[in-house]
Nucleic acid binder design. Structure first.
Length: 322
RNA sequence: GGCGCCGUAGCCAAGUGGUAAGGCAGAGGUCUGCAAAACCUCCAUUCGACGGUUCGAUUCCGUCCGGCGCCU
């Protein structure tokens, strides 16, 4: 029933293209609530390095999906998909337009297309298994994964561990679960992909890293560590944080911090572009797969101009589609 | 002016008389519950230039060019 899956605008693009600014400009024109699809902004207190919308903007425009867990906690695409589905209806009921904004393609997909139905996994056994798997060397881990799931195609210890976890805890291979059924997504996405020529994007990345450092990224990390958060906590394992933690631990010269962050941010942006270029395929469900379901936008223009275009286009697309 | 060392991809860098490691950067890609993660692929017909020795030279010899150091 496509009717139960309303069309929802989804604003994506690599870091530093200007998603937040466009969302803010759009909010000036229409009452909307931002649902952040960002695997890092879910962590409380990690504000500067994750480039969260500032308090002033958040006071003006409601934001969901931010400050959900402690930096030491683990969050996941599945949890996001469930929670965001709830927010989506709540926002609609309140008569506002939900706008998904985010750079985490995997989260967006989980929400739009659904994941497989994961049976409940025993937390203790899961933890013990992870510990055990962490002790294996890469080759042994991969062999286990292949033995437990013939369709395992590699992808390093992280994915191999996942294969072991699912197979050993549920008695069925991951690929089998995936084959069986994919949950229905909570919405039909209308993708707006913000793009910028590499050169320009790099410049914006460098500027943003400088701004983060000037805003006190190092202190933010230091404060979090002082609070007792482990240096290898999942919240501190992202771009910018990892490097800063290394610097504070003496593993990276302070003079090299800035460039190290710029470098990993670029690499991250590149991965995001690859994702949005190849993984955004709209599900070939129903009659709706039309080319305009992925709209690529030149982000070099002003946020206001983009917002105006966006709104016009949105009205046409949504009227047409409902 | 003399002596010595060095010159390998955009950068760093290993190397051998027998047909150019690796890292960074760059490019492309994978992606079903850690995704700002994890992982994969590509990237020097060529080793400063020109000669010589040799079956064969990036590797040995000579000259030149460039850089560095020391001496005068």
């Amino acid at each position: 029933m496509t009717a139960s899956r309303p069309l929802t605008p989804v604003l994506v693009g690599p870091t530093a293209v200007g998603k937040t600014a466009v969302a803010a400009a759009l909010a000036e024109r229409i009452p909307l609530t931002v649902i952040s699809a960002d695997a890092r902004q879910v962590y409380r207190r990690l504000d500067i390095g994750t480039a969260k919308a500032d308090p002033e903007l958040r006071a003006r425009v409601p934001h969901l999906g931010i400050d959900l867990v402690e930096p030491g906690e683990r969050y996941s695409a599945g949890r996001f998909a469930n929670e965001a589905a709830g927010w989506l209806t709540a926002v609609r009921v309140a008569g506002r337009l939900p706008l998904i904004v985010g750079g985490t393609g995997f989260y967006v997909r989980a929400l739009a297309d659904g994941l497989f139905h994961e049976p409940p996994l025993d937390a203790d056994r899961r933890e013990r298994l992870r510990t055990w798997a962490a002790g294996l060397d890469g080759g042994a881990l991969a062999r286990w994964a292949l033995r437990l799931d013939a369709r395992f195609t590699g992808g390093g210890r992280q994915r191999a561990s996942r294969v072991l976890e699912v197979a050993l805890l549920t008695g069925r291979s991951l690929s089998l679960w995936q084959q069986m059924a994919r949950a229905t997504g909570a919405m039909r996405p209308w993708y707006i992909v913000l793009t910028l020529p590499r050169e320009l994007l790099r410049r914006r990345i460098a500027e943003r890293v400088d701004a983060m450092l000037a805003a006190g990224l190092v202190n933010e990390v230091r404060a979090e560590l002082t609070r007792g958060t482990a240096p290898d906590a999942s919240g501190l394992d992202g771009v910018g944080y990892r490097e800063t933690v290394a610097m504070l631990a003496g593993r990276l010269p302070e003079a090299e911090l800035r460039d190290a962050i710029v470098r990993s941010t670029r690499a991250y942006a590149k991965r995001q572009e690859t994702w949005f270029r190849n993984q955004l395929r709209v599900q070939p469900s129903a009659v709706s797969s039309r080319p305009d379901e992925v709209w690529t936008v030149d982000a070099a223009r002003s946020p206001e101009t983009i917002a105006a275009d966006l709104l016009e286009r949105w009205r046409a697309v949504s009227a047409d589609r409902r």
